[in-house]
Design a protein around this nucleic acid. Structure first.
Lengths: 314, 314
DNA sequence: GCGCTACGCTGCCATTTCGGCAGCACTCGG
DNA sequence: CCGAGTGCTGCCGAAATGGCAGCGTAGCGC
């Protein structure tokens, strides 16, 4: 329905080059070039700055680009909405999330939805926290499952789930029997540490820093999977939310003991959607699934093996 | 930039007929017809119900229509935004308002803007209150200058100005010297009445009804201009907000005495914009002008000839 | 019933637009 | 100096777009 030039324009801006865009569009570069020139003629101002190495959107280009992308996104959403009139949910759901959620929770959700709604496709990406705000606001994704950072604006929190950062260790570890632990208590044992601000949310990072416990990690990594392996082999204890390790905890292969530090005990994971945006039917469905799962996990997320504590709040 | 089919689709839906749409587009009906058929083919579902008397959008059609219109509106806004980068404000401002405001306030504003920003064009419409919500939400207009009705949702109040409904009369009228008046006091004299719910806002109408003052109007009309004439000739007193008569009041040709009834004394006129919508640069400018004017009129709006009372609030 | 009108739709054709190919002018890095 | 990258431009065939005339149908007035 929409003019081809919208797609061309978007690609050119993304690739920063007319020829590259043409290639990714499987089209002759001359065609793309002409469409861009015609568009600039219509708008009346240059949309790109030409340099030897390619093109870069001008201020006007950025403005129009936002309109074009918004139009494309809204069109997809409208189509999905129309398709859902006939009962069949279809379209693409684009999710950004934490590595641990991507690895453990989302696959199951995708599997569930895939059987019931075969015409829904998924894009699931892990993302650097500094890009969270942009990724949501630009409309490149439908929603995020992320640590809640109050400093990020322009997003709405659809649901939030408290989770507890705790010490993760083997059941035969000396500290495995404790109900809670402080960082200082843990400091006497080998530690496996996430090195990245990335996987720890900013609040957690601050808490770790000011807790004063001089943790000297034996192992540092930014790979959840690597942590899983090393902890499972008894090489140390890790400080993480239990989400990425729910299966192991349930099977009794690992134990998750909540930390006593208040700032860490009250960490929150939330479903975030860009404000001022309508969600497509499949996106709404996916959010419901995520919500359901986190509610079911609720008990485990806060106090793995012990009694029930609390449920979702709004 | 955008495909022609968007315009065709919009016109067909508006006119309820392919041939009519074609005519209003100055194009052959066959061309329009084919574009619609092609579009339905692309979307995969019928967008119109065909009947002998024309076409009517299906549910899917309504959905797509909303996307199309939103796209067109946003495109206009984006163009205006781009134009304003170069310093020249351009585009169209679409305003809906009360008859009295349209007649007395907006002309001056349009005049002011026209000299400074010759490339801005205006659409100024009076509108029936029942259509206020739709007109704003559908994006057919940029903002409204209207009586505030709290029951209308989906709109945001950018600014509001208290105004007083009062009795309007000639200076030589027996009641002209009063500081305030009740409806009962006025009931003893001939009255010129707006017959329409239209120009009175709903709150005012209710207040009039329950005040119990059995007003027996000598003259009833729904024309502001007719009221002006009859009141000026001493045929009665009218109950109106002073906006439409500011010039006469300033020149001393008419006197506006506030009513004592509390519900009427606190009537509010507001600048309303649809929620969830970005305003085009010229629209923002126009709103600023309106705001400035109402602030200047502030004193007159509440207590025409007497001391200052209040200013804008937020 | 019989025109008349208005509706959506469909072949056929001219015109416009779009895309592919090759090539130009240019700049940068080796 | 040369090769590889850039944006841009003629030229030409192909595709889309719009105009015209006409078909079939349904409602309305006489």
């Amino acid at each position: 329905m929409h003019a081809a030039v919208l797609r061309y324009f978007d690609h050119v801006a993304r690739q920063g080059s007319i020829r590259k865009a043409a290639e990714s569009l499987s089209i002759a570069s001359s065609a793309v070039n002409r469409q861009i020139l015609r568009l600039e003629d219509e708008i009346g101002v240059p949309l790109f700055e030409r340099s030897r190495s390619g093109v870069r959107p001008t201020a006007a280009g950025e403005l129009l680009l936002r309109h074009v992308r918004e139009t494309q996104n809204e069109f997809q959403r409208a189509r999905a909405e129309i398709a859902s009139l006939g009962g069949t949910v279809s379209g693409t759901v684009r999710i950004i999330s934490l590595e641990s959620v991507v690895a453990r929770v989302l696959p199951q959700i995708v599997a569930e939805m895939a059987t019931r709604h075969p015409r829904v496709s998924f894009t699931v990406l892990t993302i650097h926290p500094s890009e969270v705000a942009d990724a949501l606001r630009s409309g490149d994704s439908d929603f995020g499952v992320l640590f809640i950072d109050n400093r990020v604006s322009g997003v709405e929190i659809v649901a939030e789930f408290p989770t507890t950062v705790g010490a993760l260790m083997r059941p035969d570890h000396p500290l495995a029997g404790a109900r809670t632990l402080t960082l200082t208590e843990c400091a006497r044992h080998p530690v496996v540490m996430l090195n990245d601000r990335w996987l720890l949310d900013p609040i957690m990072a601050a808490e770790f820093a000011e807790s004063g416990a001089r943790l000297t990690p034996r192992i540092v990594s930014n790979s959840i999977e690597f942590m899983r392996q090393t902890i499972s082999r008894g090489l140390g204890i890790g400080f993480v939310s239990p989400i990425g390790f729910l299966d192991e905890i349930r099977r009794g292969e690992l134990v998750h003991v909540p930390l006593a530090e208040p700032g860490l005990a009250s960490s929150r994971i939330g479903i975030l959607v860009p404000r001022q945006r309508r969600l497509s039917p499949p996106a709404r469905l996916a959010i419901n699934h995520v919500q359901k799962h986190f509610n079911e996990f609720g008990r485990l997320l806060t106090a793995p093996d012990r009694g029930p504590k609390r449920r979702r709040r709004r």
